[in-house]
Design a protein around this nucleic acid. Structure first.
Lengths: 197, 197
DNA sequence: TTGAAAAGTTGATGAAGGTCAATTTGGCAG
DNA sequence: CTGCCAAATTGACCTTCATCAACTTTTCAA
């Protein structure tokens, strides 16, 4: 069987870019030239705690998560990334030091990979790309701070309701132990909480 | 007494910039031209929940905080900003919608004010400024995510110890009810926790 | 200097959520 | 279809931290 070069599908990532910056066809091609592709099996690890991360990932299919493991071995979900979302071990990417969180696939998934060194070249070559990342980083920071406020002001049930509102699609596709981990309760308590409505 | 125009002190903010980007004298002047100055009395409110924020603040003296008020009227500290730090109601600045948090001064303070509209002009005029903000926003996001992980994996005592390590200067200058609010416990529990060492 | 308000302390009690163990349900590889 | 493993449920008990109230100490403006 002949090995056919797989055409990468950039439509999702170009749509994401166009929500914040205008790129002409040439600029789009320049941006895409720096992306590579990777397929992940269910549960496959993309970034392991302790290793230095050098890439940021854009999800085109499936769903990834980043999570931290505590000294008792319990996992705590930092972020879910369904199609159209970026995910990275940003601390490690920025500092070039070993990361403290893991990233894996919650189902068979596909991602576009952008190496930090390439990203930095793009920042110089195409300032609009730096603008794009500046904007989505600002938005992520707002979400992250809101989650801190929620963790201090809301009960577990209210955090669950907030989660359902913010990520309506994920409630049905994720095992509820993952959602419990994201909102910061045990699977047992989560189950009891749901039973009480 | 003659009113003398106050010379603004840009040394702290230029030092902060130079940690991430190189600006020549002209670029520095261009940047500083967009800044204005504001003095704050102890407890003075800089941004009130419900109002639309249009500026970001760089602290040159004193200490600010941003906080959220819950439905029981309790305050929860989102961020402290000692000299050399930026602070803003970023959600409101970005979205131009009413903010959900407050910013006030914990002591007599001085800030440099950068309006969002001016910041956006600078992003176009001086891409290095956009780079600077992209970088510090990335760093803020890393800290914010680490705080989320800490809130899920650490006990109140451990969060206090982490706070002491990360902000060694603040432990002595802040009322401990502010620190309690930041790490997410009541002042009463904080006091008992300290007593038990 | 003083006195009232704010901050901090201490104790009794209670609620939110965790831990551990037993059992049931569900998904899916063979 | 079967069997197995992971996910979810349920119950008993426990830990952490909140709440409320009384009291003490500090701060700071008049």
């Amino acid at each position: 069987m002949a090995r056919v070069k797989k055409e990468l599908d950039f439509s999702l990532i170009l749509a994401a870019l166009s929500r914040h910056v205008d790129l002409n066809a040439e600029e789009q091609a320049c941006f895409c030239a720096y992306l590579s592709h990777r397929s992940l099996k269910n549960k496959e690890l993309l970034q392991r705690e302790g290793e230095v991360a050098d890439s940021t990932f854009f999800v085109t299919r499936g769903c990834l998560r980043s999570y931290s493991t505590d000294e008792q071995g319990l996992e705590h979900v930092v972020q879910f990334a369904p199609p159209g979302w970026w995910i990275a071990e940003l601390y490690s990417v920025i500092s070039k030091r070993p990361g403290t969180t893991n990233i894996d696939a919650l189902e068979a998934s596909e991602v576009l990979v952008m190496k930090r060194s390439d990203q930095e070249k793009l920042f110089i070559e195409l300032p609009k790309i730096e603008r794009y990342f500046r904007i989505i980083t600002e938005n992520s920071l707002v979400s992250s701070r809101q989650r801190i406020i929620d963790s201090m002001t809301l009960s577990a049930l209210e955090r669950y309701q907030a989660f359902c509102k913010r990520y309506p699609g994920l409630i049905f596709s994720l095992p509820q132990k993952q959602i419990a981990s994201y909102i910061g309760v045990t699977p047992e308590f989560f189950s009891k909480m749901k039973a009480r409505f």
